[in-house]
Design a protein around this nucleic acid. Structure first.
Length: 586
DNA sequence: CTAGGGTTAG
């Protein structure tokens, strides 16, 4: 039910009460009320009404309307200034907020315990720790530093700007801390990748009855588990979310969806998504991403329709996921359609969208079209776009285009290791080993290092990491033995090793040995000997999965009856009963 | 009337 605004003149106080009761989506009603009060002159004269209008427009995400009210008002109090500063700070305009603070300062208006947190927030959002320190010392001078709101906002400011040491010191000095102060510090450790420290604090907060955790803390921890693909710990945290009643929060839910998706379980992701009470944009997007990386293209399209029906407007992430879903399935026309649709939604394509389009076209073998697309891009083509083009060159053995990119790379003087490796691979795939060797040499000459291939697997709350030919694992003996046994069985089933994936100049037998001991194979073998028979083997890899390993896993899933889920730098591969979910299109 | 933290991508 939408509240209707009466046509009769409203007393300013009544207008304030009404504004307070409006939800952020009632923009139209607020504007109607605003125009009434402008005609009567009330909104110019009554600071109370001015302030209410400023904060309503801020809440509904329209800081410039707040600013309009502010500048037309004849009477302003320090609260009007603070409210507008808050509108800017909460709507991604920290610099406007900060300049307003300079005005407040020069007008000698009070900077109290309400204004300081906004000030700190603006510094955090602008990642300006230097100015943040000034806020801190101002808070100390004015005696507000012991205020829990002021303190928490400063902890957050230091944490966000990467000054974890200062965040911790301030946190330790705070006389009173609450769930927000704890959450801010935990978030800081999460941002700096200090998972252990973050988890430590989290456990302490859970144990402390006076502190406790809330949806913010939980979503933060789940996110950490997701980033580190810690499925076991993440699932335990999920249980805690349910126990504490935060299981259906959209923030916690989005993080959980992302956790399960990153850990390879799109089914669990879907279950969590279904249970989210009010699904906000983040929730829809996290599910969209999950469908995209798992190659559930139809589900992604379906979700997009559902989202529209729910009245949620897609943003650039939504479209990025849709485009990558199209790319994984080779659906060029659909991809073009979604790309064009962005304009209808008023979304400017970013460099990622352009790169995704190049990826879509070139994987599908439309390399000349991809080149044309790159050349006509309204922005400087990002490195990822060149990379996508090279991937297409490798798949479709297109030497001409590869040479074209090589020239551009030279001009760009790129040091991205990935690009050089892609070029090498593109030549090697077409059997041009001399060109491949040259590309490798060019890469070495520029001091570009190849990224080491790593594969990891979680077992018993520990992450086991492998590199190619690794013998450092305690179960190394068993792992290699398992691979030998399986190798023989696979050959009986018709598997023939494809050593073209090994680019080094080695003898045939030697090449076979190298490919057979790639990091992903060691990790999968470890899973095979350690996991119970019904548990899927989930392996993560930082670079692209090797073609021969991909074939091997298909055979392995058939002869062992196990499900193998492998995530590489681009997507997930689900190997079941002899085939892969990517349909060998990757 | 004005106050602190976030989800989704890379």
């Amino acid at each position: 039910m939408l509240p209707t605004i009466p046509e009769i003149p409203l007393h300013p106080r009544a207008a304030c009460t009404l504004l307070r009761s409006l939800s952020p989506s009632h923009l139209r009603q607020a504007q109607q009320l605003h125009s009434h009060t402008t005609i009567s002159g009330d909104s110019l004269r009554y600071p109370l009404l001015v302030n209410h209008l400023i904060s309503f427009y801020s809440r509904s995400g329209h800081p410039f309307l707040s600013s309009l009210v502010f500048s037309s008002a004849l009477t302003k109090t320090h609260i009007s200034y603070t409210s507008l500063a808050s509108a800017f700070a909460s709507n991604g305009l920290p610099h406007l907020s900060l300049s307003l603070f300079r005005t407040i300062h020069s007008l000698r208006l009070p900077l109290d315990d309400r204004a300081l947190p906004i000030f700190a927030k603006a510094c955090a959002s602008a990642a300006d720790a230097r100015l943040g320190r000034c806020v801190h010392s101002l808070a100390c001078r004015t005696g507000f530093s012991s205020n829990v709101f002021v303190g928490s906002s400063l902890v957050d400011m230091y944490a966000k700007s990467g000054h974890l040491f200062d965040a911790r010191r301030l946190f330790d000095e705070m006389p009173v801390r609450n769930v927000v102060s704890w959450g801010g510090l935990i978030h800081g450790y999460s941002l700096s990748g200090e998972t252990e420290m973050g988890l430590c604090l989290f456990r302490e907060a859970v144990r402390d009855r006076d502190v406790g955790v809330n949806d913010f803390t939980l979503s933060c921890i789940v996110q950490m588990c997701g980033v580190d693909t810690l499925l076991e710990l993440g699932a335990q945290t999920h249980a805690l979310c349910l126990k504490t009643g935060f299981g259906s929060s959209s923030f916690v839910g989005s993080s959980l969806v992302s956790l399960y998706s990153r850990c390879g379980s799109v089914e669990d992701a879907r279950r969590v998504f279904a249970g989210i009470g009010f699904k906000n944009l983040g929730a829809w997007n996290s599910m969209m991403v999950a469908f995209a990386v798992h190659g559930r293209t139809e589900s992604a399209f379906w979700l997009f329709r559902l989202m529209g029906e729910a009245g949620v407007r897609p943003n650039f992430i939504t479209f990025l996921s849709l485009l990558s879903a199209c790319s994984h399935a080779g659906l060029v026309e659909e991809g073009k359609r979604y790309f064009a649709m962005m304009g209808d939604h008023g979304i400017e394509p970013g460099h990622q969208h352009y790169a995704c389009m190049v990826d879509l076209l070139s994987r599908a073998g439309r390399l000349s079209e991809a080149v044309e697309f790159i050349i006509n891009m309204p922005i400087e083509p990002p490195e990822s776009a060149w990379g996508a083009l090279l991937t297409g060159c490798r798949i479709h053995k297109d030497i001409k285009t590869a040479a074209f990119v090589a020239e551009r790379l030279l001009a760009l003087n790129s040091h991205a290791s990935g690009l050089h490796m892609l070029l090498t691979n593109a030549y090697a795939a077409a059997g041009m080993y001399e060109e491949a060797a040259k590309a490798r040499k060019a890469m070495r000459d520029r001091g570009v290092k190849k990224e080491t291939g790593l594969s990891w697997i979680e077992f018993d709350s520990r992450v086991h990491t492998f590199v190619s030919g690794d013998r450092s694992h305690p179960l190394s003996g068993e792992i290699y033995q398992k691979l030998d046994e399986l190798g023989e069985e696979l050959e009986r089933l018709g598997y023939v090793a494809d050593t073209s994936v090994v680019l080094r100049d080695l003898g045939g037998e030697e090449k076979r040995r190298v490919a057979a001991h790639h990091s992903e194979r060691l990790a999968v073998a470890f899973g095979l000997i350690s996991f119970p028979a019904d548990r899927p083997i989930r392996v993560m890899k930082n670079i692209r999965v090797c073609g021969d390993c991909h074939t091997v896993f298909k055979f392995m899933s058939r002869c062992t009856g196990r499900t193998i889920i492998l995530r590489d730098n681009n997507r997930f591969h689900h190997f079941v009963g002899g085939s892969c979910s990517c349909g060998d299109y990757w």
